[in-house]
Design a binder for these strands. Structure first.
Lengths: 207, 207, 207, 207
DNA sequence: TGGTAAACGAGACGGTACGTCGCGTCTTTTC
DNA sequence: GAAAAGACGCGACGTACCGTCTCGTTTACCA
């Protein structure tokens, strides 16, 4: 990420933050930062037509354009931080771990399905893709925001599952993750039948 | 697709085209149509910065902007037709069918890998995503151009494979397709190890 | 005027029209000609925003653009013929000739004033100026349509007036005409006081 | 005039300008303003075909279109300010005041005649009419730029003339002004004979 | 009576200019 | 020295008319 280092983004080497690296002049406005991230999040929200502009963000945040550009180089950087700081929440349920892998995944996929049917997940994902693709940055960014969290949860859950020795847990996790993301992005149904057949492949009944 | 129906785009109900449904007025210029689709394709080509504009298309085609807008409402519509008419070729090898599913898929995936490493596939895919996302159209369009062809080939190959009765051939095809597309889009490596592990899942050695 | 010579516009040297110089092929459509001139007139009429376009004329006349261009080279030519053929009437009262020059002029100027106050004269004049100026033709055209008729009437009336020998009748006519046209074009009031003072100059009480 | 009020156009109530009503934000570029007005003037100049476009102005001024539109809503507004600020000089000699009204007017009319014969006055006037009429604004604007200055000079000169008590000086001034403007606009000759006859009417030999 | 040729409607075409939007930068005053 | 305000150059948007150009169709005439 290209975001400038600032007093409010003290992601330097740990153990140095407390030294109070005070700079001269007016300190960065905490209020502005929050307003910008909140504005960006709201403009991506449901009901929007996914036309996120820097001018729009600045206007809605009651902030000058320059202030946005001072701290974030691109739209994507704003979004990435909005996601990272929790302003823009991508609806992603937590995979339960009851010991029954198949049942846990089924439950989780059904929760996802609700989000998708509600439109929130699909709309947000597609808007993110649009916003990211517009700024001529790499699509790696989508990965960080959309794919990675899903993948991580799945990998963890599969790792803790009691499966045969020869089973490639990572590949199974990838399989679920890839198909899910594809269906979210392309607005394909994630219906009960798909869930069953997918689970038959990656987590058959007696596993 | 929103493209207007015209003498040069005779996608009406089959069996009626031969009736020569001649319209009045100056007929649509075949030359312009080709020049536009070719221009769009070239501007998406490798080395480009994926900044496809209607003005750019018109200029490169030696055509007035109005002529582009007359026949295609959006950039995406131009692209869709450019792909459909074969001007913009998305590099997609053909899956061989030697009877050995695992070997066929391995061969095909390695070919894909070459395209990806060459950068062509990844660049083009991401450019398409960008172009499509910019014009605020639905991402369904990506599906039609990028995902569907891959999926179709895979489904056909799995259908013809000699597999056990209980095997869900479609789900296996989906698994390969999803993972492949994800890796192309997000520029992740499709290396030999991934291929082996993927095939271990969907087409184990003795199948 | 640049209008093409046609069967319907037989303004050739006199004495030759009756020879019926019939041409081969489909004759010019009288209906189209009328429709076009009428359309042009209506589009210049009151309430319009004076945005006369060739496409608009053709559309309103239910005629193809080509048909307009076939017979008239410019918008102005259409207008000139519309005025000439009486479709577009510029409201110009007739100067009476009762023998009392001052009273006749006063009466006529008051009639003009009504037209001007009604808005018709001013609107039409300004629209004509606009239409003529847009087509990069000379302002001579305005003269032919707006100024000349006024001037002719005035010259005739002054010629028939019983005035002293040394009086320059033409100059007096010009004085009235110029001031009137200026006031119409620039929407200045032609009120009773102006009329009186003007007549005091060009046609004093006992003349 | 519709021009926005700005630091560079401080036409507020007199006596308040000196208070330095400084605004926040980047101040309007004096250089751009001048370049635009100069460009507009040059594009109206002699030899031009009177095809003044906003894009042309912007291009010649080396300025973005938006900057022109930011400060002037229409072409006419640009022209009005160009005239007002002295960039576009309408050639109008000064009426001398030697005490001899007839001789002064004769001299002045002959100077005007030279301008007209040179083509400058006629061309510029007609171009202004064209530019103003194209932008669908009122022809009042012509008045302000072309007619008013002439009228003012004439009224002043006639006011200072020693004439009989009953003489309507204003009407005489109007007479000269109207006829002159008409002849300029419609490219009619302002020859010696016309001057003599006009002066015989408004300023006879022994006045 | 049938050929032929011009006029016609329809409408596509290459252009020019329009007026607007958003970008990312720059310049000024204010805090 | 950060922030607001907002002007700036730039590039693309999508639309409106321009005047020209094919087309297929109609409608007279003349042979």
């Amino acid at each position: 990420m290209e975001t400038r280092r600032t007093p409010l983004d003290p992601a330097g080497p740990p153990g140095t933050e407390d030294v109070a690296p005070r700079r001269r002049g007016r300190p960065r406005s905490q209020a502005s930062r929050e307003a910008i991230l909140r504005a960006a999040s709201e403009l991506m929200g449901p009901g929007r037509h996914a036309k996120l502009t820097m001018e729009g963000i600045a206007a809605r945040a009651g902030v000058s354009k320059q202030t946005v550009y001072r701290w974030w180089k691109t739209k994507v950087d704003v979004l990435v931080e909005a996601v990272g700081a929790g302003y823009l929440v991508i609806p992603l349920p937590v995979i339960p771990d009851t010991g029954d892998l198949r049942e846990d995944l089924a439950h989780w996929l059904r929760e996802m399905q609700e989000e998708i049917d509600g439109g929130g997940a699909t709309h947000l994902s597609q808007s993110l893709v649009a916003a990211i693709a517009t700024a001529d940055s790499q699509s790696r960014q989508i990965h960080g925001m959309l794919v990675a969290p899903v993948r991580e949860q799945l990998h963890a859950r599969f790792r803790s599952a009691r499966l045969g020795d020869g089973v490639d847990r990572e590949m199974l996790a990838e399989t679920v993750g890839s198909q899910l993301v594809m269906r979210v992005l392309f607005a394909e149904p994630t219906d009960e039948e798909w869930i069953r057949r997918l689970l038959d492949l990656v987590a058959p009944e007696g596993s």
